[in-house]
């Protein structure tokens, strides 16, 4: 400020230049990367949409709109609604468990904070499939949980713990919980404790302080976390297959089957586009409700 009063014009243009330079340096690399390795590949993939599958897979380059008419099918709507339900339940539970966890981690003394945080992601440095199989070993008919319960005489025949929607939800939460906790932690950690103290000193109950101070200030973390759990849950196809016993499918299975099993890339691309569109709509709804809160 002081300098600009001395010599206005040159400094202003210098400031403009440095702003442009800043834009270039900060935005340039990332955006270039995303254009080349995200948007171009997606465009290539979605460019199959107006064509049709060849007799034995592959693509026949004759323009057709049939992929969009195939999309309007109650079968796919069923799958979408089912996935929506499962992914929503998984996200809500992950949030209810993840928020207090992240909150307490952020309050821990420095040393424990690191340990607690790393302990959240540590299980994920071993293989996903191996962890899923560990759940199967735990929950299956002859598995640990059932055999323990039977040894204790609490049940006389194995419970059906596996291969239902509940296990799919459990598996999804298990897979994505760190993606909820880490963004929440990042948001909660920077909260100024004085704000809460001020609120408490003004006589607010803890619940009120939470709802009117803590939660709104950490809302960005909540939204990010929910996004990171909901979206991959929606597109997961391994958990429904292994923990769901293949008895129900999610949108992820649908897309996988078109690309890999039916080798119908045009329709697979159409489904991908539809999924992206659906997710965007959901994000709008989520933002709308978040702002009302």
């Amino acid at each position: 400020m002081a300098r600009s009063t001395v010599s206005g014009a040159p400094v202003k243009s210098q400031a403009r230049r440095s702003r442009a330079l800043g834009r270039l340096v900060f935005l340039g690399p990332g955006l270039t990367y995303l254009i080349v390795l995200l948007l171009v590949p997606l465009a290539l993939l979605l460019s199959y949409i107006p064509f049709r599958r060849g007799r034995f897979g592959g693509i026949v380059y004759e323009l057709t709109g049939e992929n969009f008419t195939r999309l309007i099918d109650p079968l796919y709507l069923d799958v979408v609604l089912g996935s929506l339900k499962i992914a929503t339940i998984a996200t809500v539970i992950a949030l209810l468990v993840g928020y207090p966890t992240a909150y307490l981690i952020a309050q821990l003394p420095r040393k424990w904070k690191t340990i607690a945080l790393v302990a959240i992601v540590l299980p994920f440095w071993t293989n996903f499939l191996v962890r899923i199989y560990a759940w199967i070993i735990l929950l299956s008919g002859p598995g640990l949980v059932n055999s323990t319960l039977m040894d204790l005489g609490l049940i006389d025949k194995p419970l059906e713990l596996l291969y239902n929607q509940g296990t799919i939800i459990t598996g999804l939460i298990y897979s994505y919980l760190p993606l909820m906790v880490l963004p929440l932690y990042a948001a909660i950690e920077k909260l100024d404790p004085q704000l809460r103290e001020a609120s408490a000193n003004l006589g607010a109950r803890p619940a009120r302080t939470f709802l009117s101070v803590t939660l709104p200030l950490t809302l960005p973390g909540v939204i990010t976390g929910c996004l990171f759990v909901f979206v991959p849950s929606f597109g997961n196809f391994v958990v429904p297959e292994l923990l769901g016993g293949g008895r129900s499918i999610m949108v992820g299975n649908l897309i996988r089957d078109q690309f890999l099993k039916a080798r119908d890339w045009p329709f697979g691309a159409t489904l991908s586009l539809a999924l992206i569109a659906v997710l965007i709509v959901l994000l709008l709804l989520q933002a709308w409700s978040a702002r009302r809160a």
């Binding site: 590949p41 290539l44 996988r256 690309f259």
Partner: peptide
Amino acid sequence: LDAISVMPAVLPDLVLGIGLLVFYAT
């Protein structure tokens, strides 16, 4: 730009994987 930056998190891994496969092939 905001939207594009979150896109990869919104995309199912399979879609990104096949997109990149086609990209590298092209």
